[in-house]
Structures are given as structure tokens and as C-alpha cells.
Amino acid sequence: MQHTIEELEELARKCRIEIVKMVYRAQAGHPGGSLSEIDLLAGLYGTTLRVRSDEPDWEDRDRFILSKGHASPGMYALLAERGFISHEDLTSYRVLGGVCQGHVDMKWCPGVDFSAGSLGMGLSYGMGCAIAAKLDGSERRAFVMLGDGEIQEGSVWEAAMAAAHHELGNLKVILDRNRIQNDDFCETQMRMFDIPAKWRAFGWNVKEINGHDMNEVVEGMNYLSETNDGPSILIAHTVKGKGVSFMEDNPSFHGAAPNDEQYALALSELGVAV
């Protein structure tokens, strides 16, 4: 299961290509947050998450909850690269009857543990998975990925407070701090001030990393794995749209598809011969 840094970077690059293809084919979806999260997902699946692609419902698997469930192309690309679904399945993104529903859905897609879509729900759900694991005496963990805009939802803080109260060392959060939300930059929409201090104040273990430096990503995953005295959060500083120049740090590509010209440019930037 262990990969070299180069292998993880290559995994992420392949996923980026699939993300762009999915969103282009569907002419809808959320490329920005998929591209910002993908190095983290590659690091998580490549080094840490205990799951089995040939047995996606394995009872003692770690749970991964993509709470920012609109960033589904990133997760689908990763699931295809890891063998949970086929590359052919990726063409079903946002298509009637497809396993790749608009937002990740446990009823539709193997390897998906949570039916997401509405922000602010995944941390609570992950907390339930973590409590269940403790009651079962199981070593399994729950990993939850949150968006930074998402933590404006008050229910996130209900869960944050409760998880610390229950000392859930098997609950781990990765925060994709890409600084952009639907309408604009977070700074404009809702200033969040000192995010690490907020989580610390709620009783969480906190580490910050550069979410695009694979060495730091792997270090961060190790930190989550090794931190078991209460819940822990990895705050990953990322760039929305990372890897495609015109999408980077651009609020317009939170939820918009590239046109033909942009598509060709994106693929070439990701190293695809066109």
C-alpha cells in the first residue's frame, strides 16, 4: 500500500486529468474544489486509508466521508484509479442512471461511505461512524474531508464540540483550505479569522500543511494516524483549481465547466498530448 512521493504525485496528476474530463463531458460540476483536494485524497488513499477495492463493504474498513460532496469528480477519479470503479464508470458522472451521481452517494457508488450534498453534514456522520467503531472495539477510523467555506455551517461546530467531548481519537478531519467558496473568496463572503485557533479552542489536535506538497501531505496523514488522544484535524492550505492555470485561485471555476478551448489547454497543462 505504500507508495513513493513520485508515485503519489503521478496518481494525483492522473486524477486531475479525469476531473477535467468529467466536468467537461458533463458541462457541469465542480472542478475547483476537486483539483484543490486531489493531492490530499491521493495521499490519504495511497498511504493511510485502510480500504479494500475488491471488498468495498468490508466491515472493518476505515470510513472516508467527503463532506464537501460536490467535489465528487476528485473522489470518483481516485476511486477509479484505485479500482473501486472502472474508468468507464467515470463517463456516467451526472448522467441518468450513472454510479457517479452529481454529489457522492453511498447508494450509488462502491467505495462511497456517505451520501453527501448538503454542506455541514459529514463531520456529524463521521462522528457516528467513530463512536460505532469504539463500541465495536474496532481499530477502524473515520476520515472526514471538509471544505473551508463549509465550516461556515453552524452544524459543523455542533459536531466539533461533541467529538472533542466524546474524546474521539479515531475521528480525523482534513480541511481543504482553498479560500474560495461558491460566490467569491471566503474573505469576502464570511471572514473566518484564525481557523486553527478555532479548532484548538474546540478541543482538537491541529496541524497545518501545504496541501500540494506531497511530502507534507504524507507527513500530515501520518500525523492524523498517530494522533489518537482526541479528534484531530489537518488544515491543508491549497489552491482552488490547482494544476490548471486559468482555474487556479479563480472563483469562476468553483462550479463551472471549461469550454472546448479551455479543455484543450487544461489537458495540455496536465501533460496530455492533444
Binding site: S124, Y125, G128, C129, A132, S155, E158, A162, H166
Partner: peptide, 28 residues
């Protein structure tokens, strides 16, 4: 007490903690 989960005054969280537990085989 070990099978009772206090969610504080937080109903939204409670419902989804219950959902996570149900997905793991519990009857909340």
C-alpha cells in the same frame, strides 16, 4: 450509559451521528 450518546443541545448533529451509527450496524 456506555450506549447512550449525549449530543448536547445540538439536534442537527444528533441526527447525523445516529445516521453514521446506523450505517455501522447500530439501531439508534
Amino acid at each position: 450509559p456506555e450506549r447512550t450518546i449525549s449530543c448536547g443541545i445540538g439536534e442537527q448533529n444528533m441526527l447525523l451521528v445516529a445516521a453514521g451509527m446506523a450505517s455501522s450496524g447500530y439501531i439508534p
